[in-house]
Design a protein around this nucleic acid. Sequence first.
RNA 1: GGGGGCGUGGUGAAGUCUGGAGUUCACGCCGGCCUGUCAAGCCGGAGGUCGCGGGUUCAAAUCCCGUCGCUCCCGCCA
Length: 600
Amino acid sequence: MTTYRTRHGGTLRADDVGAEVQLAGWVARRRDHGGVAFIDLRDASGIVQIVVNPDEAPASSEVLRSLRTEFCISVTGRVRARPEGTKNPEMVTGEIEVAVAILDVLSAADVLPFQLDDRFDADEVRRLKYRYLDLRRDRMAANLRARSAVIRAMRHVMEERGFLEVETPTLVVSTPEGARDMLVPSRLRPGQFYALPQSPQLFKQLLMVAGVERYYQIARCYRDEDFRSDRQVEFTQLDLEGSFWDQEGVLDTLEAIAAGVVREVRGVDIPRPIPRMTYNEAMTRYGTDKPDVRFGMEIQNLDELFADSEFRVFADNMASGGTVRGLNVGNQGLSRTGFDKLVDQAKDLGAKGLFWMVVEQNGSVRSPVAKFLRSEELTGLVSAMEAQPGDALLVVADDFHTAVGVLGQLRLDLGQPARHDDLEFLFIVDFPVFEHAADGGLAPAHHPFTAPVDVEEMRTSPDTAISKSYDMVLNGAELGSGSVRIHDPEVQAQVFEILGISQEQAQARFGWFMEALRYGTPPHAGFAIGVDRLVAILQNEPNIREVMPFPKTQTGADPLTGAPGRVDEGQLEELGIEVRADVKAEWSASQTDAVPSESS
RNA sequence: GGGGGCGUGGUGAAGUCUGGAGUUCACGCCGGCCUGUCAAGCCGGAGGUCGCGGGUUCAAAUCCCGUCGCUCCCGCCA
């Protein structure tokens, strides 16, 4: 057996002075003074300074001249205290150094395609193409460790609470509802396809029927939709479900998970209990179902103030059932042009218009619409918005969802969290069964297995019916959602019907599942937490790619491996699949697409 | 499907608005000097088809059109 090392360099301290050690790692930096030379040796534990002195180790000194950045090396030497005046208080290993006796090159390295230096943020495609080098950087290595710590903390809470880890299939049947499925063709059944799971939803419910009672899984999930900074086609969730459980049980467990994770990664305790807010309250105060409550700037209801306004826009809006909402965005130092841009932005977001006012030093209000408003309306506005001189007030008159939606978006654009490392967890509860779709109609807000508070209410008052579902929000990001599930097959059938899924459709797609519900299904509830988003926020990263070891680009490509790639005709033949001629024509037109290699 | 931004030696940027010699800065690389540095220092050097294609012009990194790649956002994500 070859011994590569007896210690990890980053763990050496003053206590180790005098010890003979063998270390192995990478050359993070080399400082060659012609005679004595220094190497910053990096391994998974950190960095320690290696000293090579030609008087003490002439052969090693020769080897050192050949070293370049990121060579993989092994050194044997003695730990010693650094001479007075040369200690480095910036490094945890800064009091000591290792005097080299033997220096071996385990593996040479080519000149790097980019510098592993946090001073430079190299082009991301290049970083992804050489991800194995990118991951050597401190920031990336720290993100990998944080991700591991998050999952470790999650497992700890789940195991402590008696949850059973169960793996569910990743080759499942496709259901056309919801997001697009990632499809996998079947060779044994040509022309048929598996889908990669969007979530283990139905399998975990089957586990409840199976009597598992407490289930969890660190589950890879797939949704074939367009990418965002917080969305990749494959992502990881902590998926959990429990029987004889209700919303309170789930939220209590989620709180323990959040607390455990933050303690593990940040070393601090979050305030408990995690605050709760109803969906309606969140929409009214923040214009979104995932409010960032790290800063105030809440939306104000101005209906009473402008109830009998003579300003045509307000009066007409009121008459048509609309509402007037305002937002005090503080002193933004906006110019006329700046306000004009906000007005354009509001219109892009769907508002009919946006009115702005600035409170002058003497308390008067400057605004293009000031002349249409009575003086008591203006003073009432200033007091309702708790406006100080210099503050800018934005007002939208529209239907409720447009008004709060537009102001909620402007709030996010103009507001600033007080401290960037704050963590504000929040539960949003009492979601509606249906939400307002872009076309003005109603669309199901959740998957069809979510229990309504009252089925009849769902049928008779779809616009106000509430479901037993809940979200967890952190710093304005949706971390996950869950619900109490339907465990009664009769209720499930009715819900399908109300959602517009015909009995035939329901039977064809979910018959196997509905049948399972008929064998003594316990009441159950569950949740899924997005691991990537959680880690990204904890690490102050702007997107989830930074906390995924091998993520894909926005167009779903992996610059390192070349995935997705074409496959040869023989493979397609076996699958009973043919690529359409017009698609092949586009292949030859574009030369940047990956082509399968001749070998293999 | 739509809107915005970016693409300049190996890396990161400035230059582009207002066309005038591939100009500049930092890092890296190569060579030399240097025995206490720690983002070592000093001296010297090499290295670019300004993403790609077309157009305008006496002249294009710069203006126009197209295209490719990346990215942010909207749609989408039950």
